[in-house]
Design a protein around this nucleic acid. Structure first.
Lengths: 255, 255
DNA sequence: AATGGATTCCCGCACAACGGGAACTCGTGA
DNA sequence: TCACGAGTTCCCGTTGTGCGGGAATCCATT
């Protein structure tokens, strides 16, 4: 499999910019390139509208990329498949319903539908959460083979709150739990005071490509029945999205 | 300004894919590249998660691009996008150039650049004008679907001057006119003695989010040629702002 | 004015990207 | 079952293109 160096570097710059806008030297340092090379690539990206450079020299994501991310691809992509279910879910739960997808070692929320009731909900769209720090991450990893999990757990696992699980053994335990129950609740593991509940979305090959989840202030989900009811609804919806994507659940199979 | 060929080609492929998913030969043909070259670039893009290849070989936009497009970063917003054009426009017209945005059922002027010539121009910044009473309102509504227009026209439409149009039928006529011409002149419909000319600004999803306009004492715009010339310039600038925001009116050739 | 950092420009070198074509895979129809 | 063609992958010789060190320039800051 051959790859084109300059394109890889350009994409790396694009991603770095998406994560955090910055200026030439800054971005060059982040992706570890000589400034003159980075300058040339950024120049090109700017020329194609993939990036924009502000008056002060700061590069940020440009209209082209934004536009592409929003294309309404008639095909069978997650977003369109999940959209109706997000709406239904938000109504059923009377809580915000979100869709996130897996990118690298994070899940990124790409769509959020707020509860019909008047709530002052924050918009989670665009947020990247590392796999070990969110409910979505657990259900995603639950579908992975063990060695892949081990490889991931061997990496850096920064804490975000006092509740963030960073101990590999404990994480493995949570993942095992997610594997059997297929839904999981997390409490204040990424942001203090917030709980969330997620279930994975699988594509036709059985790979977890994202997750459906809801979240809200922890006090709103008292342990008992309500939490379970929510979990059940989310799982049901996630399964339907998976089915819409062509996923055929294989009874008993772990992979 | 130097550019990197392979990156440009890769972005072109990315854009082509965003417009319409397709397979190798198809995409290669669309951007006019030898298949082997296109294959290599697509390979790289797939490797970086910028593209995804389905089982049947179809390439579609990948999670990376989706994620980047939805970052919380406000990025390039209307104001910064419009600023330079406001300056140019004020110079070209030798009249004040303004930017207004849509809020509820009004347009609010948020920026005004006065004509270079010494004029005693009033500053319109901060003024809310109901959609039915200003040039900006007409061009904005011109982009709406009919039922939304009807819903709005069913509401309260207070007059401000003797010239304010309040009759739904007549308003519909003006809107239709704005729809075909994409620019419109109004005369004393909000303030006696003032005329103004506006064109809409569209975001990447095609929604009208504001308008570019100019205004001045009616006696300064005698019907004939000058008014048309002004309209043309405003429309051109508004289109450029829309383009800068990612609005893609009609797919053209990409370099 | 002077300093230091960021950015742009320049240019020779080397190798990465190119693209023509062969080989291969896969689906289709006879 | 085989032969065919469209689509895709692989290979390899050639060259043009991207590379990156460094000088020159720009731009804040003091």
């Amino acid at each position: 499999m051959s790859t084109v160096q300059s394109v890889e570097r350009a994409i790396a710059l694009l991603e770095a910019t998406a994560r955090q806008p910055g200026r030439l030297v800054d971005l060059a340092a982040r992706v570890d390139l000589p400034t003159s090379t980075a300058a040339r690539l950024l120049d090109t990206l700017e020329g194609t509208n993939a990036l924009r450079r502000a008056a002060d020299g700061t590069y940020r994501i440009g209209p082209l990329v934004r536009g592409m991310g929003t294309t309404t691809d008639p095909g069978i992509d997650v977003v369109t498949a999940a959209e109706p279910h997000l709406n239904d879910l938000a109504a059923e739960l009377d809580e915000a319903a979100c869709l996130s997808i897996v990118v690298d070692h994070d899940t990124i929320t790409i769509r959020q539908v707020d509860a019909p009731k008047p709530v002052q909900a924050e918009d989670w769209t665009g947020t990247r959460v590392p796999l070990h720090a969110g409910s979505t991450g657990f259900v995603v990893m639950a579908t992975w083979p063990d060695d892949r999990i081990n490889a991931f757990l061997a990496g850096d696992l920064p804490p975000f709150t006092d509740n963030t699980v960073t101990d590999p053994t404990e994480l493995r335990e949570r993942i095992r739990q997610a594997r059997t129950e297929r839904v999981i609740w997390t409490h204040a593991e990424y942001v203090v005071g917030l709980s969330s509940c997620a279930a994975a979305i699988l594509d036709s090959r059985g790979h977890a490509i994202g997750a459906l989840y809801t979240y809200g202030p922890s006090y709103r989900f008292p342990p008992a029945e309500r939490a379970d009811a929510i979990a059940e609804l989310i799982l049901a919806r996630a399964d339907r999205v998976s089915a819409d994507l062509g996923h055929r659940p294989t009874p008993g199979a772990a992979t």
